[in-house]
Computed example of a mutant assay.
Amino acid sequence: MLSSVLLLPYLASFAYAFAVPRAPIPVPVEVEVRADTVTTLTSTQLASYAPYTQFARAAYCPSSKISNWGCGEACKAIPGFQPTLTGGDGNDVQLYFVGYWPSQNSVVISHQGTDPTQFLSVLTDIDLGQQKLDTKLFPGVPSTLQVHGGFADAHAETANIVLTETKRLIASKGATTVTLIGHSLGGAIAELDALFMKLNLPSDIHIKAVTYGTPRVGNPAFATYFDSQVPDFQRVNNEKDPIPIVPGRSLGFQHPQGEIHIVSPNNAVSCPGNDATSASCTIATVPNILVGNILNHLGPYQGIPIGTLFCY
């Protein structure tokens, strides 16, 4: 299980992680940059992501603060949200919460991420195992789908309890949408959660997912199938964050569609297709981890930082 630690040692660990010589790791250049068309987001479109970013931020807060929606700025930014289930310990199981968002008539599930320096080390390990999805959790999926084994295990830790609470809220509140949110490792869990919900809820329930700084979760067959099942999916990447370019495509991984790349504050583009290679998109901006900036993984995402340090 990927573990999470408090972000207080981050500043020291950032310096250590990138200043101290380490054993060499593969640093493939992703692809040749192409001139595909990107769409620049308007200020209104950028502002529309703020509630989802705050939900991702809130997932790092202790359950005691989430249960009464008293987690500081993140909770204040989304008044009226009703948390109904919290869980995880921030170590063996990432923190998470489930609740009802009246203004959107939506169930919201948000998952905590992890220490980005440790996470980057895990994701650049050459020995990255893929495995088939568990058909007990993902009924009817093609056998060609493969996903990162650690992400699948992390998702399985909370899948059934989250699904049970989601069904209860749909029945009691009449919710018509389920929204999955997460940052970093939490984004990977939320991506799997989105497909899981699509396959286990009635077809008239709309599935929406917004993730931040998400690594690649599965193989090209997974990405293609995910695109067909969860078209309302956006994965937001910030500037030169290296996490979204790992695990590498050379290791058999590919992102689903839906990239939103924050090029700089107040400047973001919607990138076409799977792992877009356009000049303004992530894998052209960060062709390998050595030119990335791990601090960008924490944001700010349009002025909103995400991580344990920012739960206030």
Rank of each mutant, 00 (worst) to 15 (best):
R249A: 14
G99W: 03
L11I: 11
R57F: 03
D89S: 04
H255E: 09
H255Q: 06
P142M: 06
A188G: 15
F138P: 06
Y301T: 06
F138M: 04
H297L: 09
P9W: 07
S4V: 13
E239P: 00
A58N: 03
S250G: 06
F233C: 02
L201I: 08
K198D: 13
N266K: 14
G303W: 00
N293T: 11
R249D: 05
G140Q: 01
E30K: 11
A15M: 14
D193G: 12
A159P: 05
D241A: 12
A159K: 03
M1G: 13
L163I: 05
P102L: 01
Q112D: 03
P231Y: 09
E73K: 10
P265C: 10
T277Q: 08
P142F: 05
H297W: 07
R235F: 14
W69I: 09
N266F: 15
H111D: 02
A74P: 01
V98N: 03
Y49P: 04
F310S: 06
P139W: 02
K198E: 15
S121Q: 01
Y60V: 06
L133D: 05
Q54S: 10
Y312Q: 06
E32H: 07
D232R: 05
D193K: 02
L95S: 00
S67D: 05
Q146G: 11
L295H: 13
N237A: 11
E259K: 05
V33D: 06
G273F: 05
Q146E: 09
A279I: 15
A221M: 07
L7W: 11
A56Q: 02
T37D: 07
T44K: 10
D92K: 12
K173A: 08
P24A: 09
V122A: 04
T39K: 14
D125L: 04
Y52H: 06
A77D: 01
A50M: 04
N238A: 07
G307V: 07
A77L: 00
H148Q: 14
V141Q: 03
V263Y: 15
E259C: 09
G80Y: 03
L41G: 12
K132G: 13
V286Y: 08
A77Y: 01
G174Q: 11
F55T: 04
V291Y: 08
I205M: 02
I260G: 03
Y312T: 11
A190M: 04
D125V: 02
P62T: 05
P244G: 04
G248P: 03
R168Q: 15
D134W: 06
A59Q: 09
R249K: 13
G140W: 06
T124A: 00
T84W: 02
H261D: 15
A35E: 15
N68Q: 07
F310D: 04
G87V: 07
I262H: 04
L195Q: 12
L145V: 14
A154V: 05
P256E: 10
E239Q: 12
P51F: 01
Y16K: 14
I189F: 06
R249M: 14
D115T: 14
L123S: 05
G90D: 06
K76G: 10
E32Q: 12
Y225S: 07
K65A: 11
H261I: 01
